[in-house]
Design a protein around this nucleic acid. Structure first.
Length: 575
RNA sequence: CGGGGCGUGGCGCAGCUUGGUAGCGCGCUUGCUUUGGGAGCAAGAGGCCGGCGGUUCAAAUCCGCCCGCCCCGACCA
C-alpha cells in the first residue's frame, strides 16, 4: 500500500475527550473516529488490525474444530422471553418494534439464537459434540461507554458455543477453548492472565476470564505469584492476618460522638481490626445487616450474589430499625437477617450497641449473635493466598475474553435436546466463549505503546514494514524503494510505502505513531552507501542491509520478531 | 441513574469574571524556496461561538430550559 493513496488521517495533538492511551493513539494514528458515545467508525488502518486479530481467532477456532456461522442481529423478542432474559436484562438491551408491531431486540449476545438453531437441528447423540462460532456485531445500550474502543455500544465479538452430551464432554470443550484462547492471545502478542470469574447473568457454575493487565482496564484481579491462583476481585478469596484478640465477655462501653471506625478506634485506642463494621442494607425482602472487620471493605458484588439487589439504609431507616443513630449499628438484639464476613467466625470484637453513644466490647460472633458467615469482603493487596499463603498481588486488567460453562441454562427453556444411545431424551449441555477483538487490539496498544506512539505486536500490526522513501522526487531513491517494495510484496510481506511529498520529519514521526514492527529507510544515505537502514519499532535496534539482499534480510527479521513476540500467558510466566 | 467537567473554523485552545470589531497555535489552499526528524517566506480560504427561549439599544459573554461529549460512581454477556 502506498501512503499517498491510503486514507489515514493522523493528528499531532491528543483529542480532548480521550483519557486512555489506546484511545488517544487510535484516534491520533487514524485507526478510528468516534460517531457518538460508544460508536466508532473503523478506518482502513483500524480495520486491518481488527481483521488481523480475527484471522488469528479463525485459525485457532478452526484448529479446535469450531465452525463459523452468521446469525441475525435483529431478533424476535419471543426467544428472549422463552429464555427468561427478556425481563432479566434491563435497559441494556435495545428493544424495538417492527412494522407489524412485533417486539424485536438487537442482539447483545447470541445464546438464545444459537440454542434455537440447536433445538431444531440437533437430534441425536451422533450430532454431538458441536462447536459453532461467529464474529459479529453485538449491541448493548451501555450505561456508560468509555475508554474509546474498550467499552462501546456496538462492537464486534467472537462468540463460540459448544454443544455436548454431558458434563464430561463439556469439560473437554471448555479445555479446548482454554487452549485456543491461550494460543490466540499469545499470538496476538498481549500479556494476559486466565482468572476465575463470576458467571453473572450468563448462568452456569464455572467461568473464567482472560485478562490483559493494563491501568486502563475496568476490572481488578487478585494474583498469587507462588501457586498461580488468579481470580477476579468479584470472587477472589484471601486469608487476612488475624489480630491479637482481647478476652471475651460482653460489656457496654461509652463512646460519645464516636461513630466511624476511625473515631471509635481512636477513642478506645484499639486498632480498627478489632472492630466490626456493621452496614444496614435494604432489600426487597426487608433489611439486612452486613458485617465486615473494621479495617476491611464490603465487596458489593459478593454480597449481591447472596442477598440480591440492595441499597444502603437511610439515616431514618437506621433509627427505625436499630433504635439508634448512624454509627452505633451492631448485630446484638437485632432480629433481622445478618450476614457476616467469613473472617469474623473467629475472634472477639467491638460492635455498635444500637444505642446512641455506646458500643459493646468482648463480643464473640456465632456465640453472642448469630449470622450467616460468608465471604463478602474485598481482598486487599498483600493478604495471603487462599491456597498457599503467599502474598496476593492486585492488578487492573482489560477483559479480553471470557468462557462460561452454561450447562442447561438455555437448552432447557429453549428445548435443545437430543436422544442418547438408549433413546432417552436429554438436554444439550452448553458452553459459551467470547473474545473482543477491539479490546485485544486496545490492550496491545496499552501494554506496548511509548511516548512516540503505538508499538504493534507483529501479528496484528496493520503493516509488517513501513518503508520510508525520504525523497520521492529523487529518481534513484524512488527506484530503490520501488524495487524493495515489489520484492517484499511478492514475498507476501505487507508493506506501507511512504511515497508522499512531505518532509522527512513528518514521515518518521508518523511511522513511529503508526507503530509497524520495522521501519525501512531509503534516502540519500542508502544511495550513497548502497545499504538501506532498518529500525525495529520495539526497542529501536538498527540494522543496515545491502540493497541486493535487503528484502531477504527483512523477511528473516520479521520472522524472528513474530516468534519472539508471542506472549505466554502472563500467569504462567510468573509461576 | 447519582456526582463533576466541558461544548468557540478540521484538531488543540484563549476570549466569558467586567456585554459592544471573534482571536492564537496546528492543519488546509496557492506560489516560491527547502528535503534524514512534525521546514521557511508570502498570499489566502474557513466560525448561525451546541440548540431554543429570555434580559438588553446590543449577548460567545448574563439568566432559564434542552441537547451532546468526557470523567468518577452504580450497572455490565
Amino acid at each position: 500500500m502506498r501512503a499517498s493513496k491510503l486514507f489515514f488521517p493522523t493528528q499531532k495533538e491528543n483529542p480532548a475527550e480521550a483519557e486512555a492511551a489506546s484511545h488517544k493513539l487510535m484516534i491520533r494514528a487514524g485507526l478510528v473516529r468516534q460517531l457518538a458515545a460508544g460508536l466508532y467508525i473503523y478506518l482502513p488502518l483500524g480495520l486491518r488490525v481488527i481483521n488481523k486479530v480475527n484471522k488469528i481467532i479463525r485459525e485457532e477456532m478452526s484448529a479446535i474444530g469450531a465452525q463459523e456461522l452468521s446469525m441475525p442481529v435483529l431478533q424476535p423478542a419471543e426467544i428472549w422471553q422463552e429464555s427468561g432474559r427478556y425481563s432479566e436484562i434491563g435497559e441494556e438491551m435495545f428493544r424495538l418494534r417492527d412494522r407489524g408491531g412485533r417486539d424485536m431486540v438487537l442482539g447483545m449476545t447470541h445464546e438464545e439464537i444459537v440454542t434455537w438453531l440447536a433445538a431444531r437441528e440437533i437430534r441425536s447423540y451422533r450430532d454431538l459434540p458441536q462447536v459453532w462460532y461467529q464474529i459479529q456485531t453485538k449491541l448493548r445500550d451501555e450505561a456508560r461507554p468509555k475508554s474509546g474502543v474498550l467499552r462501546t455500544r456496538e462492537f464486534i465479538m467472537k462468540d463460540s458455543y459448544s454443544f455436548d452430551a454431558d458434563e464430561e464432554a463439556l469439560e473437554k470443550s471448555y479445555q479446548l477453548h482454554i487452549q485456543a484462547y491461550k494460543r490466540i492471545f499469545g499470538r496476538a502478542g498481549v500479556r494476559f492472565y486466565m482468572v476465575e470469574s463470576d458467571p453473572g447473568m450468563m448462568g452456569g457454575a464455572t467461568a473464567h476470564e482472560f485478562m490483559a493487565p493494563s491501568s486502563a482496564g475496568e476490572d481488578e484481579v487478585a494474583l498469587c505469584p507462588a501457586c498461580g491462583y488468579a481470580a477476579n476481585m468479584e470472587l477472589a478469596r484471601s486469608q487476612p492476618a488475624q489480630p491479637q484478640f482481647p478476652a471475651a465477655g460482653m460489656k457496654e462501653i461509652e463512646t460519645p460522638n464516636a461513630r466511624t471506625i476511625e473515631q471509635v478506634s481512636a477513642f478506645l485506642n484499639v486498632t480498627p481490626d478489632l472492630l466490626i463494621k456493621s452496614l444496614l442494607l435494604i432489600t426487597d425482602a426487608g433489611p439486612v445487616l452486613a458485617m465486615v472487620r473494621g479495617d476491611q471493605e464490603l465487596m458489593e458484588s459478593k454480597l449481591a450474589r447472596l442477598i440480591g439487589g440492595y441499597r444502603l439504609a437511610e439515616p431514618a431507616e437506621i433509627k427505625e430499625i436499630t433504635g439508634a443513630g448512624t454509627g452505633f449499628t451492631g448485630p446484638l438484639k437485632l432480629a433481622i437477617r445478618k450476614v457476616a464476613d467469613k473472617g469474623l467466625e473467629e475472634g472477639v470484637y467491638i460492635v455498635g450497641a444500637n444505642r446512641n453513644g455506646f458500643h459493646v466490647g468482648g463480643v464473640v460472633p456465632g456465640q453472642d449473635f448469630q449470622a450467616e458467615f460468608a465471604d463478602i469482603r474485598r481482598v486487599r493487596q498483600g493478604e495471603k493466598c487462599p491456597h498457599c499463603n503467599a502474598s496476593l498481588k492486585l492488578e487492573r486488567c482489560i477483559e479480553i475474553g471470557n468462557i462460561f460453562k452454561l450447562g442447561v441454562k438455555y437448552s432447557q427453556p429453549l428445548g435443545a435436546s437430543y436422544l442418547d444411545e438408549r433413546g432417552k431424551e436429554k438436554p444439550v449441555i452448553m458452553g459459551s466463549y467470547g473474545i473482543g477483538p477491539a479490546r485485544v487490539a486496545a490492550a496491545a496498544i496499552e501494554q506496548l505503546a511509548d511516548e512516540m506512539g503505538i508499538v504493534w505486536p507483529p501479528a496484528i500490526a496493520p503493516f509488517a514494514a513501513h518503508l520510508v522513501l525520504v525523497q520521492p522526487a529523487d529518481s534513484r531513491q524512488a527506484a530503490m524503494a520501488q524495487k524493495l517494495y515489489s520484492e517484499l510484496m511478492s514475498s507476501g510481506i505487507e508493506v506501507l510505502l511512504d511515497d508522499r511529498a512531505v518532509s522527512p520529519g513528518v514521515k518518521f514521526a508518523e511511522a513511529e505513531l503508526l507503530g509497524c514492527p520495522v521501519r525501512v529507510t531509503v534516502g540519500k544515505r542508502a544511495i550513497a552507501g548502497g545499504a538501506v537502514e532498518v529500525q525495529l519499532r520495539r526497542g529501536g535496534e538498527e540494522y543496515k542491509f545491502e540493497a541486493g539482499v535487503a528484502a531477504r534480510e527483512i523477511i528473516g527479521l520479521l520472522k524472528t520478531l513474530e516468534g519472539e513476540a508471542e506472549c505466554e500467558s502472563a500467569s504462567e510466566e510468573s509461576s
